[in-house]
Amino acid sequence: MKQAIIELKNVWKTYEMGDVKVHALRGINLKVHKGEFVAIIGPSGSGKSTAMNQIGCLDIPTKGSVFLSKKNISTLDESDLAQIRGKKIGFIFQKFNLINTLTAKENIMLPMIFQDVPEDKRNKKAEALLKLVDLEERMDHRPNELSGGQQQRVAIARSLANDPEMILADEPTGNLDSKTGSSVLEFLKKLHKEKGTTIVMVTHDKHVAKQADRIETLKDGKIVGAKT
C-alpha cells in the first residue's frame, strides 16, 4: 500500500459570522499519497482554499482530524504547526505572495532562515533553486522588478527551499496569462515527473486539472467526485 502523506478524516470547518454559521467544509475525507499529483476543482466558494489550508496545516479543523505522516496535527499549537509547515510543506499562491522588500534570492532563503539552516548552505541552496527555475540572473531583483511569471517561478523556488514532502498550489496560474500559466504548469509537472514531488493543486480550469494524476471535485464543502 502507498504511503499517505496527508489524510483528512471527516474534516469540518465552520466560520461563525455573528449568528450565521458558514460551513466551509462539511466532512471532507481525503488522502494524498507520496508522489501523487492531485488537482482540486470546484466552483468558487466551494471550499477549495479552506481545504488547502487544512492540508497545508495552516489551520486546524473545527471538527475531524488531519494526519500528516500519520501524526495528528489537529492538536498542535501554532508554533509547532509553523515548524511542520516550514519543513514539510511548500506553498505556491495565486498572488505569488513574495516579500516585496526582499530580493528574489532572499525570498527563497526565507523558509530556510526559519528552519535555522546555516548561511552558506542557504546561499548554495538558493542559488541552485534559482538555476532550477532559470532566474539566476534575476536573483538580486525585488519582486516588483519581475514579471508575474518570474515572480511565480521565484515562489516555486521558495516552496522547494526546505525539500518539502508536498507542494500545495492554490490556483498557481490564476494570475498569469495562459502562456505563462502553462509554462509554470509544465514546470510543476516536470518536478512531479522527474523528482517525484507530491503536488496538490487547486484550479478552476478543467484543462489544467487534467494534467494531474487525480482530480477531486468540491461542491458546497463536500467532495462530490474523484476522477483518476
Binding site: L58, A82, G86, K87, L98, F114, Q115
Partner: peptide, 16 residues
C-alpha cells in the same frame, strides 16, 4: 498583515 501571513505559512514561528 499579509507579509506576516506569508512568513507564517512558510514556517515562521510566533517568536520569529
Amino acid at each position: 498583515t499579509k507579509e506576516i501571513g506569508i512568513m507564517k505559512a512558510i514556517g515562521a514561528k510566533n517568536s520569529d
